[in-house]
């Protein structure tokens, strides 16, 4: 077998191995990415599933216990809302009225148990309505 073919074979092996590693990583870590409304529409089907849910922290619903690293709030969408209890390191700028993405799982139809909250980055490019 010529050098070029051997190298092509090696590159092919690397490509196949990469695809396998990527697929196994995806299979182990995939989770739904839903808005609050989508989550509530599909709640019966996805209870217990891992998910990232995107919504707005409802007004006058945020309770933060920084000592316990615990946050409770209602995440609102356009039509629906869901209670969130989140533990773990909380972002400093978590506040009511802020768009957030909560990573966790749907414990029951009306409760998301989160372990990570991602907020709008401080640095970037004004959100809708600000410009």
């Amino acid at each position: 077998m010529g050098t070029g073919r051997t190298l092509a074979l090696g590159a092919g092996v690397i490509a196949v191995a990469t695809a396998y590693w990527a697929l196994s990583g995806a299979a182990a870590t995939w989770q739904y990415y839903l808005t609050v409304d989508e989550c509530m529409d599909q709640a019966a089907r996805i209870v217990g599933s891992r998910l990232r849910i995107h919504g707005t922290v409802g007004p006058e619903t945020l309770e933060i216990d920084r000592n316990q690293q615990l946050a409770r709030f209602v995440l609102t969408g356009e039509r629906e809302c869901v209670q969130v209890i989140c533990t773990g390191t909380l972002p400093d700028n978590l506040a009511e009225g802020m768009e957030v993405v909560v990573e966790g799982y749907l414990e029951r139809r009306d409760l998301v148990r989160g372990h990570k909250v991602m907020t709008k980055c401080a640095s970037k490019y004004a959100a809708q309505g600000r410009t």
Binding site: I14, A22, W30, Q31
Partner: peptide, 21 residues
């Protein structure tokens, strides 16, 4: 039809062997 995302393990699974190569 379903919107899904992947976690860090997806990226790290590939980064480790390719990084070693």
């Amino acid at each position: 039809g379903h919107t899904v995302v992947v976690g860090p393990a997806y990226f790290n699974n590939v980064l480790t062997p390719i990084g070693l190569l």
